[in-house]
Amino acid sequence: MQLLVEGLSAAHGPRRVLSEVDLTASPGTVTAIVGPNGCGKSTLLRCAARLHRPDAGRVTLGGTDIRRRTPRALARDLALLPQQPTAPEAITVRGLVAHGRHPHQGLFRQWSREDEDAAREALEAAGVADLADRRLDRLSGGQRQRCWLAMILAQATPVVLLDEPTSALDLGHQVEVLSLIRRIAAGRNATVVMVVHDLSAAARYADRLVAMADGRVLADGVPRAVLTGELVKRLYGIEADVLSAPGDGASVIVPRQDPGTDTSSTVNKPTR
């Protein structure tokens, strides 16, 4: 199912944060939205999840405007993992993943065979089946994030939105979670759109990179083609080298040292 954003403009109070943004995300691909803090990338994701009302433009899912669907119908097609999701006190992983089935349930359809299969597959796909009866708040950050992804997987939607899914994780867990996100796109032919901070991670795990600054899209395309030193400078205002990783050829960003703030050189140089 294709996610289409057309001419989207949005504001926080008087401050304009999105200006006529267009975006197309296709099934089976991971689209990464990158950009400096406050560039509007999270707002874009929130508009697509109907958490923020845009001033102009529209978001369509498989051809229909998301505003014209009921919340439940939309939740059967589009799942969202917020940046810092909160869970009820003392909930277990099993309880969390079971709630992922909510949009498919009703008063007399409380736990169908389909719910049962989807939840089991989600637990296994996220590699958290052995944690099912553990309390979520007693797990490590990486385990917890995989459990949240299991909940999203249980929701079994063709479109998945993720807001900084790796921001609080160490390197090992980042790789684990990003690989899982790749598998969701490839294995389920899902349309995955995520906001990420780490440019190198975005370059390695996303099929498409959308770079934003000041509420506008600066670049949109295959990471290797889009990601240049020039773009990094326009996004973050720093000089950086874009290298090719020896292992897989993915782009790696290496910021250049600014002589003015280079601490090692001031230590080594004797005072004039």
Binding site: L51, P71, R72, L78, L80, P85, T86, P88, H102, P103
Partner: peptide
């Protein structure tokens, strides 16, 4: 009682609840 399944989901906060189809 009719709202109790939605109350369960509301405990996750507004963002997750919206994502799960509860306004």
């Amino acid at each position: 009682l009719l709202a109790s399944r939605r109350l369960n989901v509301l405990r996750y906060g507004d963002e997750t609840a919206t994502g799960l189809g509860v306004h």
